[in-house]
Structures are given as structure tokens and as C-alpha cells.
Nucleic acid binder design. Structure first.
Lengths: 151, 151
DNA sequence: TCTTGAACCTGTAGCCGCTACAGATCCTAT
DNA sequence: ATAGGATCTGTAGCGGCTACAGGTTCAAGA
């Protein structure tokens, strides 16, 4: 990989080819351009987008970052850091660490859901309860001391 | 809890009180009504919503199901099953099992993200690589000084 | 009774990250 | 020249809320 080529935007690929090469939907590519995540490419005489190697690199970056769950805003920041080569590592790492914390929180939340549900489904299956354990769980009891919504 | 009281909609609680007792945002309560998840309550002479015990139960149900990650459509189905008391358990269980599968898939996806990111952040931290390992990962490069991806 | 001001009303628009059209135009192979 | 695939712009929708704006109603205190 040669990051200098990020600047190489010599027009070669129409949007369909870029889509096939990156696995990114055509509509999504146009969306990324609209929100300023991908720079506007050159155009053919008829107005069709023509992308260069730099676009291919950037879009690949975006896609891989999305696969790791980064938000588009985080990716925007990472792309800026990738272009400014002076002190990216510390800051890039910070973005990743924050994101890692988010991911771990989500995993914990989902695992909590999973265990409640798995246990409930098992109780449903053993057919020993007259009522449906799942529905009973969901009806629960209203906590009269519940706090008002914040804000 | 007494599910028969789901039909009890004798007007007592204004929306703010319902909000406090369920922990559900006022705007969200109105939203649930708009999309037909909560039935429209009685109104005062001036047009203020007045909720009964049935609404309290239903909204509690909805909230708890949301906490377990059910979608509003799934909750709609569960509420129908909760009202039709003939053969709810099997079907309710099916909804839960499908949802459980979703949750487990999400957990697996997040754990895959977590391990890639955690490993990358560690490489960032040890400062042995000249390039930023995070950005290299996102660019999809093969770092010649790095070992092939461990299994 | 009158007056505050908190609670409530309706309606609309925004958030994220796409996706799905419609209806027009372009590009390329025959 | 023509067919038909690729691309264009623009708008609207998804889920599940949240945040206003600009108005009305309710309940407690003077």
C-alpha cells in the first residue's frame, strides 16, 4: 500500500467498477460523496463519475473501518489523521480506544439480554409453568418509584 | 401482575405521570400511540391524555421488551399473543428464539471487531512499528514486518 | 376569581447509515 | 441507428426515537 497514492485521483473507474472492487453499494458511494466522506471525482463529458486509485484506497479504508464498527464521524477523523502524517498514531489510537470501549459496552449489554432471554426460553420449553414465562417476564412489575426521564 | 387488567383503561394518569411510572419519555409514549403500539387513551375536556392501568401495564411490557432488544414489530406480535390467551406460549417462544439468534449473531460480530481492534491497539501502544498499525490495518496493507494474521 | 407557570397539545424536522425508488440521460456494442 | 445496461439527480423511507416551535389547558396560590 502506498499512502501517497491517496492523492492520485486520475480518472479511470466508473462508479460501478469502484462498487465491484470495494464491495460498496453504488448508492452508498454517492452518499459518502454527499456527506463529504469521499471527495467528488472527475466526470466524463456526459457527467458520469470517474474515480482514481486514491478514491479506491479511501473507500477501502472507509469500508474496513465500517466493518470494525467505526461511525462515519470517527472514520472522518481517522482519514484526516491518515493524511496528516506527522503525529497520527497517538490520536488514531485514541479514536480506536474510545470505540473499543463502546464495543465492549455493547457486548456486555447484549450478553445481559442474551442470558435473560436464554433462561426464559428454557423455562418456556420445559412446559412446567402454567403461564408463559416469557410473557410473565415481560409483564414484570411496575416499579412505582421509577424516575422521570432525564432532561 | 394481572393481565385481565390490560382491558382496564379507566382514565386516571396524565401522560407525565405515566412517563414517571414507566421511565418512558413523554415523546416516546406519544410516538408509540402514533404507530399503534399503544391504544389511544381517553382525553380530558381540554384534550389531555388520561391513561388507565391497562396502559400502564402495556407500556411496562413494551419497555421491558425494548430493554431485551426486541424490535417494535416483535413487541407488537408479543402483545397480540399476550392478549389472546389460548396458545401464546409456543408462538411467543418462537419470537424470542428468533430474537435470541439475532442477539447471538450481534455478539459474535462485535467480538470479532473487538479482537481485531484490541490487537491493533496493543500494537499501536508498543511503539515498535514505524507506521501506525491501526491505519495500516484500515488501509488493508500487508505490513512486511508483521507476522501473518493469527488464526 | 384571577393569575401564574407547569404540564400538556399538535405538527414537523432531525438523528444515523444507508436503501429504494422514479424518471431522465449517457455509454457502448452490434 | 438502436438497444439496453449503466449512470445521473432528487426525493422519500427505514427504525426508534428526540427536539423543537408555537399554541392550549390545568391546578395551585393570592
Amino acid at each position: 500500500m502506498d499512502r501517497k497514492n491517496l492523492q492520485d485521483t486520475a480518472p479511470r473507474l466508473p462508479i460501478g467498477a469502484l462498487s465491484r472492487r470495494t464491495g460498496c453499494n453504488i448508492e452508498t458511494i454517492r452518499y459518502y460523496e454527499k456527506i463529504g466522506l469521499l471527495s467528488a471525482p472527475a466526470r466524463s463529458d456526459g457527467g458520469h463519475r470517474l474515480y482514481g486509485y486514491g478514491h479506491l484506497m479511501r473507500l477501502g479504508f472507509v469500508r474496513r473501518a465500517r466493518e470494525l464498527g467505526f461511525t462515519l464521524d470517527e472514520i472522518r477523523a481517522l482519514l484526516r489523521l491518515a493524511e496528516d502524517r506527522d503525529r497520527p498514531c497517538t490520536e488514531a489510537r485514541e479514536v480506536a480506544v474510545v470505540h473499543l470501549t463502546d464495543i465492549r459496552t455493547k457486548i456486555a449489554d447484549l450478553q445481559a439480554m442474551e442470558s435473560v432471554l436464554a433462561e426464559t426460553v428454557v423455562r418456556c420449553a420445559d412446559g412446567k409453568t402454567p403461564e408463559c414465562p416469557l410473557l410473565e417476564t415481560l409483564f414484570g412489575s411496575i416499579d412505582p418509584s421509577a424516575r422521570p426521564p432525564a432532561g
